[in-house]
Amino acid sequence: MRIERIKRRPGTRDAEATRAAILDAARAEFAENGLGGGRIDAIADRAGINKAMIYHYFGSKDALFAEVLQQNYALIRAAEAKLELARLEPAEAVGTFVEFSFDYVAANPEFIKLLNEENLHGGRHLNPDLARQLNSPVVAALSDVLARGVESGLFRKDVDPQHLYITIASICYFPVSNRCTLSAIFDLPLGGEMLNERRRQATEVIFGYLRP
């Protein structure tokens, strides 16, 4: 996939547009070929720029991958914020969040590939402080939902919001990221039927866990 070439007025350079084009191209290249197989020349070609610009803005391939990874997390956090869980009743908020989490990974294969790649590298490209900063709003939102659910008698009292988030992410992530091997092992369909059933069960499992 080639990113549309950046249009510039003569004698000007739109730094923001250039960075965005590089990040889009790098996201596609790293998702397709991994960090080791991803090539700076290929990223430059996808972005329609000279590869020297990549080193100018990011310094190295590893630094560029780290920036792509950060963007990967920022995108899902921004999408989660749009759910406005605080405006929903507790049960609706939990159901909405679980379904969103499943649908997001199903609709964004690059998200899965980039996370898998970073785990292969031991998480060394993540900035822990920045990662915690990005994740804190969703944990805070779930904490509020849990507190309201406990107050209304819907949820048990001993649920840690961070652990709940990890559980939801795990239940939603695994059947999507491993759909090919699951299909081969259990002779399951790759597409909608299998994923729809896993999506339904994910919601049921989480509500079963939260029930007093």
Rank of each mutant, 00 (worst) to 15 (best):
L85S: 13
R13F: 04
L120W: 04
R132L: 12
A15G: 00
E110I: 04
A28P: 11
D158P: 05
L120A: 05
Y104C: 03
A63W: 01
G123L: 03
V138S: 12
N50H: 11
T96N: 00
A86F: 08
M1A: 07
A42R: 00
N127F: 00
C180F: 07
R5Y: 05
E197G: 07
A63R: 10
R39L: 13
R87T: 14
A79W: 04
N50A: 09
L69W: 09
I112Y: 00
E16Y: 00
N119W: 00
L75Q: 15
E151M: 09
D14I: 13
K113L: 13
R179M: 04
E4S: 09
Y165K: 13
G59V: 04
R124F: 03
G153F: 01
R148F: 05
S177I: 02
F97K: 08
G95T: 03
G191N: 10
R87A: 14
L64C: 11
L120T: 09
E99Y: 01
T181R: 12
R2C: 15
K61D: 10
D103R: 00
L134E: 09
N127P: 06
L130Y: 00
I171T: 10
S101I: 02
S183W: 02
A52N: 14
G123D: 10
L146K: 13
A141I: 04
E32H: 00
I166M: 13
E32L: 06
L64K: 01
L164V: 12
P137F: 01
I76S: 15
E117A: 06
G37I: 07
F207L: 10
I185H: 12
T18V: 06
G122C: 01
E110Y: 09
K61E: 03
V138I: 15
Y104V: 04
E110R: 14
T12F: 02
T18F: 01
I49W: 00
S101W: 05
H121Q: 02
R77D: 13
I3D: 11
F174L: 08
N178L: 12
V159S: 13
Y73A: 06
P128I: 03
V150E: 11
M53P: 02
A106C: 08
D144K: 12
H163W: 01
I43V: 11
F58S: 12
A47N: 03
V105G: 12
K7A: 13
F155V: 03
N196G: 10
A140R: 15
R156S: 06
T203A: 13
A106H: 13
Y55M: 10
R199S: 08
R77K: 10
S101V: 01
Y57A: 01
C172T: 08
N127Y: 06
A78E: 15
N50P: 05
L190C: 06
A169D: 12
P175H: 06
E16I: 10
I171E: 05
K61H: 09
T167N: 01
